[in-house]
Amino acid sequence: MDRKKFLKTCGMGLIGLPFASALLTSCESIYYATSSIKNNSLIVPLSEFEIVKKNTTTYRTFVLVKTSREDFPICLYKTGDHEYTASLMKCTHRGCELNVGGGIYSCPCHGSEFDTKGGVLEGPADQDLKTFKTSIQNENIYIELS
């Protein structure tokens, strides 16, 4: 391959990279749920997972929740019917805020990856994420913060 063709091929690859990245990331948007605190529990209405458009209801797979008790948001992830996990979005490697999408949590700083239950999938992190016990009562999800 001659130099000109090589540079042209590399240039096209660099131009296409942002578009490919956009296509490969999760189509689900980041949504911050409303919540309240009672005693040591963060309360999130189950309705925060609903998306209603034109008389059609679909459901989010996750919502983020901010609380004054933590420096990072908590991701509340639906793992099954009436089953939710809650993980602090703080990487256990160097403390960067995690991204969520595609069924995993990923660290933009050093590439660590975690499953939706907070378990390490890929290092350099070697500790699972901080997780919180969840329960459902009266159309609300309770996240125990203690």
Rank of each mutant, 00 (worst) to 15 (best):
T131C: 04
T85I: 04
V63I: 03
L23A: 15
N40K: 14
L64W: 07
G13M: 12
R3V: 00
Y84W: 08
P45T: 06
G103L: 01
I136S: 15
S36I: 03
K133I: 05
L42P: 15
T67H: 00
P18L: 03
F132Y: 14
S87L: 08
S135D: 15
Q127H: 07
I37P: 13
A22E: 13
K8W: 04
Y59L: 01
G13K: 12
D71Q: 06
S112I: 05
Y32G: 02
M1L: 03
R3M: 02
S112Q: 05
V44M: 10
V120G: 01
D115L: 04
I143N: 04
D81A: 04
Y142R: 12
G123P: 09
K38C: 06
L121Y: 03
G119L: 02
I74E: 03
N40E: 11
E28L: 11
L145E: 14
D81K: 08
T58C: 06
G13N: 11
I141C: 09
C96S: 13
A22R: 14
S29K: 15
L145P: 15
H82V: 02
I136C: 13
H82M: 08
L129W: 09
G11F: 15
T25P: 00
T58Y: 07
V52G: 01
L64H: 08
S41M: 02
H82K: 06
D128N: 07
R69A: 04
R3C: 00
T61E: 11
K5N: 12
S146A: 03
E113H: 00
T9G: 08
C109S: 11
L24W: 15
D126N: 12
V63S: 01
I104D: 07
G16Y: 14
L42M: 11
C109G: 13
C109P: 12
